[in-house]
Computed example of a mutant assay.
Amino acid sequence: MDYINSSAYRVTGPMKISEVPTREDFGLSDKQLKKDLKITRRELGEFQDMLYAHGKYSVLICLQGMDTSGKDSLIREVFKDFNVSGVEVHSFKVPTELELDHNYLWRHYIALPAKGKFGVFNRTHYENVLVTRVHPEYILGERIPGIHSVADIQQKFWDKRFEQINNFERHLFENGTIIFKFFLHLSKEEQRQRLLRRLDIREKHWKFSPGDLKERKLWEAYQSCYEEAINNTSKSYAPWDVIPADNKKAARVIVATILLERLKKYKDIREPALDAKIMANLETYENQLQGER
């Protein structure tokens, strides 16, 4: 969309999360935003077909945000026009026993999209420097050599994790994975309103958990962890975009526009040409099929 400056959301240097806006509507109605999203996601769906035919790149989309920031609905609306076989969504929750028997990146690595496909991580490998940072006792479940208690988890531990994540993403990029990382930036007041809606609307009751309120009390700690994680891991090969998320419809249009604009820059992604021998005999094949009447 012409009214969206997609580069404005990219983190290219140190940023203070408290200074980044959480709301945007571009002065447009919800109806217009929905219409614009429909146009953009249709183009994204066409690009996905071409990506699959080309077969040399994959696309990884990482979504992070506080509870109620709109990750689920964004996935539903932005990828609605994709071929269902061309996009895979993974939601990472509390690690299983099997996952804890491996390093913390393992479960993310095995969920990566194949060439020609889009993969969406709803919560991502960044949980390992966010939730575990706010609740460092969770790290003990990973059974890491040399880590015997929370006291052993110092700043250098997190610095090393940032380095490991950067290396992980660089490896993916250098092997043909196009990486997008979106932080859905929600205000604390908007989260309060959304949690209240979960309580007020019977159809939304299933979404509510008392644990949401416990985590909400740690809001400032999470904001600090997000700021440090984003500042340490927004790289040219895997940049972060901070998306104002108080208006869900605007957030969806912004994300869809960023995806489409940046993917279109890959001029080498195109439908493969037919083999010369096949091209030379197209008329013969057509005649053969026509002759079956």
Rank of each mutant, 00 (worst) to 15 (best):
2 D>Q: 02
4 I>W: 01
6 S>E: 13
6 S>D: 03
8 A>D: 13
10 R>C: 00
11 V>Q: 05
11 V>N: 01
15 M>S: 03
17 I>Y: 00
17 I>E: 03
20 V>G: 10
21 P>E: 09
21 P>M: 09
23 R>T: 14
24 E>N: 08
25 D>E: 09
25 D>I: 00
26 F>T: 01
26 F>S: 06
39 I>M: 09
40 T>Q: 05
40 T>F: 04
45 G>R: 00
46 E>D: 15
47 F>G: 15
52 Y>K: 12
58 S>I: 14
58 S>K: 10
61 I>L: 07
68 T>K: 00
68 T>C: 00
72 D>M: 05
73 S>K: 07
74 L>T: 14
74 L>W: 00
75 I>A: 05
75 I>C: 02
76 R>H: 12
77 E>Y: 03
77 E>C: 07
79 F>Y: 06
82 F>N: 02
83 N>A: 11
87 V>L: 09
87 V>W: 07
89 V>W: 04
91 S>H: 01
91 S>Y: 02
92 F>M: 03
95 P>Q: 10
98 L>Y: 13
99 E>D: 04
100 L>D: 03
101 D>Q: 15
110 I>M: 03
111 A>N: 12
111 A>Y: 00
111 A>T: 15
112 L>I: 11
114 A>T: 14
114 A>G: 08
116 G>H: 11
119 G>C: 11
120 V>C: 08
120 V>R: 02
120 V>S: 05
122 N>G: 01
123 R>M: 04
126 Y>K: 07
128 N>E: 15
130 L>H: 05
132 T>R: 11
132 T>M: 05
133 R>W: 00
136 P>M: 12
138 Y>E: 05
138 Y>L: 12
141 G>P: 01
142 E>Y: 09
142 E>L: 13
142 E>H: 11
143 R>H: 14
145 P>T: 04
147 I>R: 10
151 A>E: 13
157 F>Y: 12
161 R>E: 01
163 E>H: 13
167 N>I: 06
167 N>L: 15
168 F>K: 10
168 F>C: 06
171 H>E: 01
171 H>N: 13
172 L>C: 01
173 F>A: 15
179 I>A: 05
184 L>C: 05
187 S>N: 02
189 E>W: 00
190 E>P: 10
191 Q>H: 11
192 R>V: 04
192 R>F: 02
197 R>M: 06
197 R>H: 07
198 R>H: 05
198 R>I: 03
198 R>P: 13
205 H>W: 08
206 W>A: 08
210 P>Y: 04
211 G>H: 02
215 E>A: 12
216 R>A: 05
219 W>I: 08
219 W>H: 06
220 E>G: 09
221 A>S: 14
221 A>W: 11
222 Y>P: 14
226 Y>L: 12
227 E>I: 08
228 E>F: 08
230 I>M: 03
231 N>T: 07
231 N>Y: 10
231 N>R: 08
233 T>P: 06
235 K>L: 14
237 Y>L: 13
237 Y>T: 08
238 A>Q: 04
239 P>H: 00
241 D>M: 10
242 V>H: 03
243 I>E: 00
246 D>M: 07
247 N>A: 04
250 A>H: 02
252 R>N: 02
253 V>N: 03
255 V>H: 04
256 A>D: 03
256 A>Q: 05
265 K>M: 09
270 R>H: 12
273 A>K: 15
279 M>R: 14
281 N>K: 15
281 N>W: 14
283 E>S: 15
285 Y>D: 07
289 L>F: 01
293 R>H: 11
